[in-house]
Structure formats: structure tokens, C-alpha cells
Amino acid sequence: MKGSYIGELEELVLLTVGILYPDAYGVAVMDELERQADRRLNISAIHAVLTRLEEKGMLKSSMSEPTEERGGRRKRIFTLTAAGKRAIEEAQALRAQMFNQIPKVAFQFKIVG
């Protein structure tokens, strides 16, 4: 599982963690994903992705102070690491590079023949 390759969901989660800085934790990431990308995911799935990304070294985490709205439980706050940032950038660059190679003609949607 570990390596520099990241999947599409992982990429989205990495981006979300970046956006939410410095308040990215499980429920917040889930909400943000739903709002921005219209992806409804179970909270346990979000946790699984976050843990995986942390294992890959793209995220780091620390525990917050307990808050009342969570029944006194603490949050695990995730932040991007340098490797995480590089991973999004690489993904971004790769897409841009590949997108630019598509010949213009392919975008001319005409009824052929």
C-alpha cells in the first residue's frame, strides 16, 4: 500500500485536508468532500483513508483539545506533510501534462460522417 502512488479518493482527501488547514479532522473532511465534490462517504471510510495516507507519510496528525460538541472527545487534526504536498503537485502536474497532449481535434465534437 505504501508508495508515492495515490488513488483518486486519496488525492481528493489530501486536497481537502489542505483546504481545511488547520482544522482538518474526520467529520470536517467528510463534510467538505460532500460539499465540494458531492461525494457521500461513511465516516469510517474517511478514517481509513486518512490513516492510510498517514502511513504513507503524506499526512501527519496531532490530537486537539477536547470539545464539548463531541462529548468531550478529542479530535485528531491532520496536516499535509511535504511529501503530501508533493504528491498533490505531482498529480496535478501529471494531469495538466497529459491534458495538454490531447490533440485539439479530439475536442471538436462534431457529428462525423
Binding site: 479532522y25 474526520g26 465516516i43 478514517h47 490530537m63 460538541e69 472527545r73 479530535k75 485528531r76
Partner: peptide, 13 residues
């Protein structure tokens, strides 16, 4: 436990 229970409770409330 803390983070998981926290998240689940937050959603619950």
C-alpha cells in the same frame, strides 16, 4: 477510541 468515538458522537448529535 478518542477520535473515532468523537467523530461518531459529533455526527450523532
Amino acid at each position: 477510541l478518542d477520535e473515532i468515538q468523537g467523530d461518531v458522537l459529533e455526527l450523532y448529535y
